[in-house]
Structures are given as structure tokens and as C-alpha cells.
Design a protein around this nucleic acid. Structure first.
Ligand SMILES: [Mn+2]
Ligand SMILES: [Mn+2]
Ligand SMILES: [Mn+2]
Ligand SMILES: [Mn+2]
Lengths: 221, 221
DNA sequence: ATATTTTTTTAGTATTGCCTAAACAATATT
DNA sequence: AATATTGTTTAGGCAATACTAAAAAAATAT
């Protein structure tokens, strides 16, 4: 049972997320961009994570997370998402206010704490952004989900998650009335710029850029 | 509005607590004992806290917390105690299990978080160990409280707090059935070693050493 | 195939927070 | 008053995490 510092956990999470996006041999620059640190700092950290065997690292070739590393990453992600649920459900935070705080809370070290929190929240399966919460063994219930912009004309579905969890994006969604659980249908797709006209909950129509649509994930129905 | 690191907050809290125990010019060795770090490390830290003007520090003469410092210390203490209440009331932690975790949680930086937590908990006035929770302005509702061993023979009172919050002591209290809120009466005081015979809740009699009694705080009635 | 650009690593530095060993100051003892 | 003891600070060092600048490797363009 190795010990990871908070910084190591953050980097490992970044490697995990980048790997999940399909990337093999995650690059130093990608991690640097994700972590908002300089590539030189990433190189330092990769050596440390490699020593602890949570990543496979060959200089100049990028890194891959190990099975052991995945386990640790998933536990941090589990904590992050459970705390987000707590903040929204119990402390009435808005979904755009939780990320920063959860980024700190996820590093609190106490197995009993997270087990009890999970219980207290009623074993939630998804966080406020629609992301699945890994269970205590690291198992994730993945839902099939597609970016809204790939739906065909007249296709319908339900918003189940957002890809971008930035406050700016989430507040925009709040403003236009797009929320997780909303039913959507593609009324029009503009070929020129990929923008869309969407029917929300069979009531309201909404125009959105391709940029926005790419970050809304739907379960096709 | 200065920024304090977690380590600085912990040291400042230690200075605050030692000051509250009546001590003027808190000594490096006392802080070292409280913090379980070496005196040399304390000297380093005192210079930093002094630079930030949260303590008054004259080499070799000990330190005193400033009014500004008191404000910061009280906010950390407020967070610590609110989290302890959360852990006990909401997550069913035992009162001997909360200290370590609260010691980490108290450093999470988010004004809204602590305000909402306070609300969620119903603005509690005391933590699970009977210690008062400072309000958002740092005001503390102090209750008059005495160590159980100073009560005279046949005097009665109610347990309102414990001085020692170590797991060992709290588990001992659990075992013998002494809890916050219990009514107590001094049935006998042994002159030889200061040990006591106590009647708890008009039901059970309890023998305890002076050491134990000193750490049980009562509201005399 | 060579030159240029991009990516990555290394070298050297800073800060925080801890340590040990040694020096220094204050206090107590003879 | 001199010496011993105790308490405190300084000096120097280490680990973690970040940085900048320079070097090296890999990828791309000519
Ligand atoms: Mn984090
Ligand atoms: Mn989330
Ligand atoms: Mn603490
Ligand atoms: Mn407490």
C-alpha cells in the first residue's frame, strides 16, 4: 500500500483522465496543459510516479497508467465526485461552484470518512455533472453517452452529463435552461458552422454553437 | 487579508490554545511539545508568523498572539469544530474518531463552504467534546466550567466538556458511561491521591483517578 | 539527408517545512 | 562570580514541488 501526496494524486488523476480519452502514451505536454504546470515540473513528477509504479514511463515516449495506478486514481475520483454530490445535495451549492472545493476535499485521507459519506448520500451513482462515481472497488458504471452534436436531425435523447465542468460553461447551461435529465431533440443542424437548434423538454427551442453541443453528453433515445 | 498555509494555521492554533490556558509569552518549547515538532522548527515558524503579524515575537522572550492572529485562529477553530459536529451528527462517527479528520478538514479554504455547513448543521454552539464553536465573527459563547476534581464533597453538576480529546481518554469515558450532559455528584474525595467517587445520573457510582477528573469539565449546579 | 522546429529532459534555483548539530542566551547552582 | 543547566536560535541540510534556462532528443520540413 503505497502513499501518494496530494500533488501526486492530482497528476495521477490527470494521466488517468487523458488515458480515458483514448490517448495511449500520454505526453508530457498534455499533462502540463491539464495540470497548468510547466513541462519541466511534469517530467519531475513522472519520475516519481514511475518509481511508485503507478505509471509506466519511458523517457520521450509518454506514459501509461498501470493497473495499480488506475486503482488509486479511481479512488481519488470517487472521493471527488462524492464530495461534489454532498456539496450540491446537502449544502445547496450550485453545480458550477463545487469543483474547486472538491479538488481539495478529495485528498482527505480517511477510509471510514468516505465510506460513511457514501452511505449518508445514499450511494449515489453519478455526480452533479453526470459523471459516474466509482464504487469502493473502483468499478465504474459507464452509461453510453454521445456529444449532442453527433445526433442526427430529429434524433432525441436525454442530457446525462457535461464534458466541460467549468463554471463558465455550467452557468451558461443554467442560463439557457439545459440541465441534466432534460429531454432534447435536434430540430435543425446548420451545416455551415455545425450549430444546432434543439427542442428542450418538448417546450423550449434553443440555439447553440457546435462548441457548446460538443460538451453536452446525451443518452440517445 | 493575509494568507496562511496549513502549517501556519496549525502553529497559530497552538499558540492560541496555549495563550488561552492563561500563559503569557508562550515558549518555544511549549509550542514544540504541542505541535510535536522540534524547537528549531518552531523558531523557524515563529519568524514567519511574526512577519505576517499574527503573533508578537521577541527572541528568547516567547510569543503572544495578536488581535489579528486571534481572528485567524478562531476561524480555523470554528471550522475544526463544525466539521467535528458534522462527522458525529451526520456521519455517525464516535467522538473519539473525529479529531484527526477535522485536523485536515479545517484547512479547506472556502468561505461559502463553512457558512453552508454551519447552516446545514443548524448553527451548533458546541462541538462533540463540549467546546464552544466561535461564530463567523470569532465570538465565542464561553460557559463557566470547572474540572470535576475541584468540586467539593457532595457538590453536583453536569458534564459539559472534556479537556483531553484523545481517543484513549474518550474511549475510557465511553466505557465507564461518562458522557456530555450526564449529571454528576461527588460522593467521596480521597485525600491521599485525589481520586473521586462520583454518582452519575443518580444511578451509577464511578471511581476515577484525579488524572481523569481533571479532564472532565462540569457546569456546577 | 540535412536543417529546423517542437517536445522533453536536465541543471540549477526558490520556497515551505521539517530535521540535527552547534552556538548562544537566560536561569539556576555552587 | 563562575559554572552548569536549560531553553532558544542559527547554520546547514533534506524532501517536496514548483520555476527558468539550457541541453538533448524526436518529429517535421526542406
Ligand atoms: Mn485535487
Ligand atoms: Mn464532477
Ligand atoms: Mn490542522
Ligand atoms: Mn473538539
Amino acid at each position: 500500500m503505497i502513499k501518494l501526496t496530494s500533488a501526486e494524486e492530482n497528476y495521477l488523476k490527470a494521466v488517468y483522465h487523458l488515458s480515458e480519452e483514448g490517448k495511449k502514451n500520454v505526453s508530457t505536454n498534455d499533462i502540463s496543459a491539464e495540470m497548468k504546470t510547466k513541462p519541466a515540473s511534469v517530467s519531475d513528477m513522472l519520475r516519481k510516479l514511475s518509481d511508485k509504479k503507478v505509471i509506466d514511463y519511458r523517457k520521450y515516449y509518454g506514459v501509461n497508467i498501470t493497473d495499480e495506478g488506475k486503482k488509486y486514481a479511481l479512488q481519488v475520483i470517487r472521493k471527488h465526485r462524492l464530495w461534489e454530490v454532498f456539496l450540491v445535495e446537502k449544502l445547496r451549492f450550485a453545480w458550477d461552484e463545487v469543483h474547486e472545493v472538491a479538488e481539495e476535499l478529495e485528498h482527505i485521507k480517511s477510509p471510514i470518512l468516505i465510506q460513511r459519506l457514501d452511505e449518508f448520500l445514499g450511494h449515489p451513482k453519478f455526480d452533479p455533472h453526470g459523471d459516474p462515481i466509482p464504487d469502493e472497488f473502483g468499478d465504474v458504471k459507464a452509461r453510453p453517452r454521445l456529444p449532442l452534436n453527433v445526433l442526427a436531425l430529429n434524433d432525441g435523447g436525454q442530457i446525462v452529463a457535461v464534458k466541460d465542468s467549468s463554471a463558465a460553461f455550467l452557468r451558461y447551461l443554467d442560463k439557457v435552461g439545459a440541465y441534466i435529465g432534460a429531454r432534447v431533440k435536434v430540430l435543425d443542424k446548420v451545416e455551415f458552422d455545425g450549430s444546432l437548434e434543439i427542442l428542450v423538454d418538448n417546450k423550449k427551442t434553443l440555439f447553440m454553437s457546435k462548441d457548446v453541443a460538443e460538451n453536452i453528453l446525451v443518452l440517445q433515445q
